[in-house]
Write a protein that binds this DNA or RNA. Structure first.
Length: 816
DNA sequence: AACAATGGCCTTTTT
DNA sequence: GGCCATTGTT
């Protein structure tokens, strides 16, 4: 771990005298730490930015400051984020700060910037210029198609698992030849990975992982190109650094400079901004360890902690600080505020999930009525999506408008995917994933049998489905021919048309709209398809076609021969003379470096793949916000409810076995707590309907890690975690007060909830004895670790391998 | 090819 | 309990 003293909060020496800086309106109202971060001298730096500490402000002000003081040119700046939302926010704020367009800067998501790089240097990267991007759905169908073709037993190799395997390999930077496979199963997987790659290459498509890996390899293997970009990007800024995976970190290293004798020969400055306490994406490959690696490998000299929180009252921060202090392996950070204590954190114990939801509804009503809070400033957070149902129905019955985040996004909807598949076929007839998707949609007499014949034919010749159609005889061949003709004719007809007209013609010619006219839920789908036309329209106007691009001569490696004016940047004063322009440079459109252009259609398809759109229902309404804790990261609300704080749910039982699982759950809780500005409500329920059965849960262990002084128990606190009150009658009486009138399922109320297996405090387990688990079956205890509520057992199950189970949660019974 | 029925799954998720 | 995907039926 990093020594504590490295993280001195002291302002770093700045490039200009403090007095001058303070006078600058840009730097007004920054606190000393923020000021230090904004005015860091050249060199790599790590900024540990706590929740609500003004991180985005620091990032954008830093960029503006560099430009204003002539320390950087727009072309020399690369700022990378994880989500489109964050990238847009940065662009918007910068546009407001700067008197000129942000166009010359590279601001975007990792994948967006990779896309840009690969489009610009598609030849060097071995890709067609208009390669299309597979989203997760497309990738899965591509894998399924592959497996079918090679007669893979999908019991032994479920496509989902293969997808996970392939994505995982790519995130680790591994090509099939790099994967070490010892057992036959693993070898088979690698073989399929190889075949999948060949298929993608043949079809001219890349998945998300490929976008990252391919551009990493491009930089790694192409010396002049790498040198060019290293020279160009003098200032690299990375947001949410704790969420970077291994490959993204390696990608950043390629851009940052040469590695000499194990340490990085710095070219530009990399400023990494992150918060290890908010690392909640380890499950998808994020490596918090990248923060420590960054400090070591980049020889980071300056680290700044932003600990001043501008969001919450101190009771809320106390709760957060106290909780997170139970994690080991932290870089160390404590949030503080100038605000007073505020309201205590209210804690409620419900007798059932229904009662819990009704309590929330009652409290929400009061917050709106008595405290005048806007409904959209109230959020209900939960650990898993399944929990939303009960809350939704309670809100619905109380006629409180609400909005659930999550679910399908615009470009992920089936009808939109169908339309996009047709559009992709216009762009690239060899995109078999798209071909297979719509060859019989709307239905045109091409059944599974015909498709199978076609696929076999295509494989035999080694060509695309499109090209194999002519070899299929008979009626099936005729139907297939008609489909191909439809697409080919459409392609010719729409040649030179604008995007709107292409899409309208496509919708008409393919009969998509017509097809949905007869379906029961077709009206919504038709509206969505019309919305697609609007989306395309606004894409065209927003992204501004035909803006000037600068051509750049390339050598035979695809690397720029000379620096373009853009890469040298405008001279210091020039930007200020530029007319202000709100639109941002968008990946996939026009590359300002190379002048390479993409057809409007290809650009729009890229946009659709890279930015799936909003995943929120009806926006605009003043509605209570419902979402998972993960989805709430980066947001803030006046009042926050965190429900389902029960052991097994939050922390989630699946996390208890994993190494570091509990700590990630704790960080998740930390994220949830720090969303609240004024009020925080925590609740747990004695019983909960989950997967069709009533579960009896004890309160979350996290309650024991919160400071008593900041809490106010609305229902009396139980003696302690894991020890259920023998007589639960009291709890029932309390819930009757606020939620009882809503009625209980007889089975939950008839007898007081009794936790089934936790009656005996001593678990009575020891190594060697046999146990039974409801999910994993029979197993043998290998080891016991910890005591009391932290006790865990390592159990070897006959069918499920060896697992660590928390005894307080796992349902283990001794078998003799 | 369209529909009904059954079975298996079930933490979190962006690009 | 409810959602999905795949299977079976007409």
């Amino acid at each position: 771990m990093l020594p504590q003293d490295l993280f001195s909060g002291a302002p770093a020496p700045s490039a200009a005298p403090a007095a001058t800086l303070a006078a600058s309106p840009l730097l007004a109202h920054l606190n000393p730490e923020q000021l230090a971060a904004v005015t860091l001298p050249a060199g790599h730096a790590l900024i540990l930015a706590g929740a609500g500490s003004g991180k985005t402000r620091v990032l954008t002000t830093r960029i503006a400051w560099l430009l204003q003081n002539g320390l950087a040119t727009p072309g020399g700046i690369l700022a990378v984020t994880f989500t489109n939302k964050a990238a847009k926010e940065m662009v918007a704020r910068l546009s407001a700060m700067l008197p000129f367009s942000v166009r010359g800067m590279w601001i975007g998501t990792f994948h967006g910037l990779c896309n840009r790089l690969l489009r610009a240097h598609h030849q060097a990267a071995g890709l067609p210029q208009s390669f299309q991007i597979l989203d997760t759905q497309d990738q899965l169908s591509a894998i399924k198609r592959l497996c079918k073709q090679f007669n893979v037993d999908d019991e032994r190799f479920p496509p989902k698992q293969l997808q996970y395997f392939i994505a995982g390999c790519k995130e680790e930077g591994q090509r099939p030849r790099d994967v070490v496979a010892t057992d036959p199963d693993a070898r088979k997987k690698v073989e399929l990975y190889q075949l999948y790659e060949e298929q993608c290459q043949r079809e001219g498509v890349v998945d998300f992982g490929e976008l990252m890996l391919r551009s990493f390899e491009l930089l790694r293997d192409n010396d002049p190109l790498r040198a060019h970009y290293q020279r160009r990007f003098a200032h690299i800024l990375v947001d949410e650094f704790q969420d970077t995976n291994k490959l993204q970190y390696a990608w950043l290293k390629q851009l940052a400079g040469e590695e000499v004798d194990g340490h990085l020969e710095a070219r530009g400055s990399v400023i990494a901004v992150g918060d290890d306490d908010q690392s909640i994406y380890a499950f998808r490959g994020a490596r918090v360890g990248n923060m420590a690696d960054f400090v070591r490998e980049f020889g980071v000299q300056r680290q700044i902690k932003l600990e001043h929180n501008y969001r919450s009252y101190s009771n809320i921060l106390d709760a957060a600080n106290h909780l997170i202090s139970h994690n080991s392996a932290r870089l160390g950070k404590n949030l503080r505020t100038d605000q007073g204590p505020g309201e205590p954190v209210r804690v409620f114990e419900a007798s059932s999930d229904i009662a819990e939801a009704h309590w929330m509804v009652d409290e929400i009503k009061q917050l709106v009525k008595n405290d005048g809070l806007a409904r959209q400033e109230i959020a209900v957070l939960y650990r898993s999506n399944a929990q939303s149902r009960v809350i939704e129905s309670a809100l619905f019955n109380a006629s409180i408008p609400y909005r659930v985040y999550g679910g399908l996004r615009f470009f992920e909807r089936a009808e939109i995917k169908h339309a996009l598949a047709y559009l992709r076929l216009l762009e690239n007839p060899h995109d078999d994933t798209s071909f297979a998707r719509v060859v019989n949609f709307p239905p045109r007499g091409i059944g599974a049998r015909s498709i199978e014949v076609l696929q076999d034919a295509a494989r035999a010749v080694g060509c695309s489905l499109h090209d194999a159609v002519s070899t299929v005889p008979g009626k099936a061949g005729a139907n297939l021919g008609a489909f191909v003709a439809l697409v080919d004719v459409l392609r010719e007809q729409t040649q030179g048309h604008n995007l709107r007209s292409i899409i309208e013609r496509m919708l008409d010619a393919t009969g998509l709209i017509e097809h949905y006219r007869t379906e029961k839920e077709g009206q919504d789908r038709i509206e969505n398809l019309q919305e697609l036309v609007n989306a395309a329209e606004s894409f065209v106007t927003l992204e501004g076609f035909g803006r000037d691009a600068v051509a750049l001569p390339l050598d035979e490696h695809g690397a720029p021969l000379t620096q373009s004016p853009a890469s040298q940047g405008l001279d210091v004063d020039a930007p200020l003379r530029d007319a202000p322009l709100a639109s941002a440079a968008v990946p996939g459109m026009v590359d300002v470096d190379t002048g390479e252009t993409l057809s409007p259609l290809a650009a729009f398809l890229t946009h659709a793949a890279l930015e799936a759109g909003d995943n929120q229902a009806q926006a605009g309404q003043d509605a209570v916000q419902l979402m998972t804790v993960h989805a709430s990261k980066g947001l803030e609300f006046d009042a926050v409810f965190i429900g389902g704080l029960e052991d097994g749910l939050f922390p989630h039982e699946n996390a208890l076995g994993d190494r570091g699982g509990i700590e990630e759950e704790r960080r998740l809780m930390y994220v949830a707590i720090t969303r609240a500005r004024q009020r925080l409500y925590l609740s747990h329920s004695q019983t909960r309907m989950l997967h069709g059965q009533t579960r009896y849960n004890t309160q979350s262990r996290f309650f024991d890690e919160l400071p008593e002084g900041a809490l106010k128990w609305i229902t009396p606190r139980h003696p302690g975690f894991g020890k259920f009150a023998p007589d639960s009658g009291a709890a029932c009486a309390y819930s009757a007060g606020s939620g009882g009138r809503f009625g209980f399922k007889s089975d939950t109320f008839a007898s007081p909830p009794v936790p089934p297996q936790k009656a005996a405090p001593a678990h009575g387990l020891r190594a060697g004895i046999n146990v039974f688990h409801t999910k994993f079956g029979e197993g043998k205890v290998l080891a016991i670790e910890g005591t009391g509520d932290d006790a865990r057992a390592q159990v070897s199950f006959a069918r499920h391998g060896t697992k660590w189970l928390a005894l307080a949660v796992a349902k283990l019974t001794v078998v003799d």
